[in-house]
Design a protein around this nucleic acid. Structure first.
Lengths: 378, 378
DNA sequence: CCCATTTATAGTGGAGCCCATCATTAATCT
DNA sequence: AGATTAATGATGGGCTCCACTATAAATGGG
């Protein structure tokens, strides 16, 4: 109703101010006391005391003073993002990727394991364990240092972190993924749909940086979609948001078939079709346009539903954005009321793992740096 | 990034506590001091002082003590929702409705004007002015007492409150509605799509009470849709969210045609078709099922996109929910991954006006009762 | 090499706010 | 009428933030 209201103590106020200082340091990088005070809208004396406490607690550290200024050199302070770690996992059909990052989401180590779609769930879970362990071991990180973990995987994943239904991976539906990872790591574990994490990554560090409302399309042999609204990935009431691919009129999953189905010049694999279209072969171009029409219908349905500012193309086919974007733009222009921009992903295949790291960091932000629940300034 | 962080003064803390007290009183109704303190999680002495100030400022008033208790009778305090007014407007094709309410959204007066779809924009705007004026006059309200106004109308309305495109009303596209109303009333004026306001009304006071994520379908001669996520109506980047009706595969607007098009037993008007289906006439039943299939495709597309907990049917056809709901439920069950509940609207044709009132109240809540911008406890 | 200038740091006193506690007041019930 | 119950009113103490002033540590020109 009214926005966030529970009465507060003086200690509560102090906590709020400590969080304001932390936020100022995280956003502004290393800062001298005076500038922290400006950013946090607090008096110097207050900030000084708060910084002293935060230094004691280990959240803030002093840096070497930067020379070159005029007057007395200012002490500079920084947020200690290295105090804890987060783990991001991408559990796919063909690979498992583990990314270890600091509290600001800077990746410090990556580990990769190859898998196959047909693997048993035990084998895949073992690969996950190997990737996670390797990531920790190689960077000399103890499991206790990991404060949050997020895993992304294909399919519909419920709010408790169980894979309800996965078409892309054979023996995967029904896996209690969060529970499995919870046994592996002594920290909160969240599981999310991989497209949603990829979308988040695009919003934070990719093509959609600074965009508040976007739709993400994962295009490849398998299709997927996700939505970000007001900068927050949309889960929906049960975690199934973005699963428009199962709609009988759209079937993102099977859409790529139109690329190779008919016509005399149909190629063996999809990349070749895009390549041929790029060279100007009419049959291939027609196939790409057919494909764009199919995808466009689904993209338009989602765009008309949530009215995004931007549609981002990810997945394997985004490498062929040069031939795919123009016809897709044309479709959206023909169908949308307010036409979103359309761009290709700028992140590589670490996209989902990076999104997982971002999600973990943001989850920690809401838990750790929260006046109610947070441990800051006990 | 980190949630809501700007450092605070002691006065800031006092403001926060004043807002906590107001929130406690608004949620809990008239309350004795002790209970206010409990709800606001503050000490009695603090609450006492805050209440004294708020009473001075006119936000809170003392009530007659309620007899019947055991010990010394407690003074009871209440939030003065009568201190200001909000105006909700429903500007439709066939009627204009004005609803005046207090700060808690309790409607104190309604005024109605009949209009026609073919009217010129000047005539319609004149009817709006008459309805608003009548509402104020009949309740003895000066325009300065109205603190916020929200108008709902059909079509795509941009973020500045201009009607960009309206199909249901002839001479309506391009009307700068917010600007017109801004001249009429000396307060903030917001304009929203009518389906969105109806959806909000259902969430607050109708079939979707307590539901966080829902999709609203306006079914009638014209179709419309809206989405509420986490209790907040979804606008999208440009205010066009929910306009799935213009998608070439769905065309909610023309969907009602399948009710009367073919078959020997097709009736003259839609209500008769539902009536006939209710009686068991096969042709009419077939027509209703055809209609449910058309609507179901659009509802499924939206549901798969945002994964709501509930789909609410509103609009004229919701009166025939008894025959329409079962086939629609069947469609959604066949297509959705996580199947939402489907219910009919429980609000009458004041739905949009009530939604407008709700929206105005909630807008005021974020402006007035806001530690940053609010005038409370200067 | 010294001194003015610039900029940041340290310390003090004041004011505002919240809270715990205790004595007091005003009803009902026996 | 007295016991019981429950809310009120007032006092003093402890935190927290802030404005202000004096001090410290660099740079750069004469």
């Amino acid at each position: 109703m009214t926005p966030a209201v529970t009465g507060g103590d003086l200690q509560h106020l102090r906590r709020l101010n400590a969080l304001a200082v932390i936020a100022a340091l995280r956003e502004g990088g290393p800062l001298p006391l005076t500038q922290v005070a400006e950013r946090a809208e607090l008096a110097r004396a207050t900030v000084k005391e708060v910084v002293r406490e935060l230094t004691e607690q280990g959240w803030v550290a002093e840096m070497e003073p930067a020379g070159g200024a005029k007057g007395r050199p200012a002490r500079r302070y920084r947020f200690r993002a290295d105090r804890g770690r987060v783990l991001g996992l991408d559990i796919g059909a063909h690979k498992v990727l583990a990314a270890l990052a600091d509290l600001d989401g800077n990746v410090v180590h990556l580990a990769r394991e190859e898998v196959t779609p047909a693997m048993s769930r035990q084998e895949r879970l073992a690969a996950v364990d190997r990737a996670a362990s390797a990531c920790l071991a190689a960077s000399g990180t103890a499991p206790e240092q990991v404060w949050a973990a997020v895993a992304g995987s294909t399919g519909y994943i419920d709010l408790d972190g169980n894979v309800v239904l996965s078409r892309a991976i054979e023996d995967w539906s029904g896996v209690p993924l969060a529970a499995h990872l919870g046994d592996l790591l002594p920290c909160p574990v969240l599981v999310e749909n991989d497209s949603r994490l990829a979308a988040l990554a695009e919003c934070r560090r990719g093509a959609a940086r600074g965009v508040r409302n976007m739709v993400f399309l994962h295009l490849g042999r398998r299709g997927g979609a996700a939505i970000v609204l007001d900068g927050v990935p949309l889960r929906g009431g049960g975690g199934a948001a973005g699963e428009i691919g199962v709609h009988p009129l759209f079937r993102l999953g099977g859409a790529s078939e139109v690329l190779r189905s008919p016509g005399p010049g149909s190629a063996a694999d999809d990349g070749a079709v895009f390549e041929a279209a790029r060279r100007g072969e009419p049959a291939a171009q027609a196939a790409v346009i057919r494909y764009a029409k199919v995808i466009g219908l689904a993209a338009a349905a989602m765009s008309l539903t949530v009215d995004p500012d931007l549609v981002v193309l990810g997945g394997g086919f985004s490498r062929s954005a040069d031939v795919l974007l123009p016809p897709l733009r044309a479709e959206l222009e023909a169908m949308c009321l307010r036409i979103p921009a359309v761009l290709a992903s700028t992140l590589g295949d670490e996209c989902v793992a990076v999104g997982a790291v971002c999600h973990a960091v943001e989850h920690l932000n809401t838990v750790l740096f929260n006046p109610e629940t947070g441990p800051v300034t006990v």
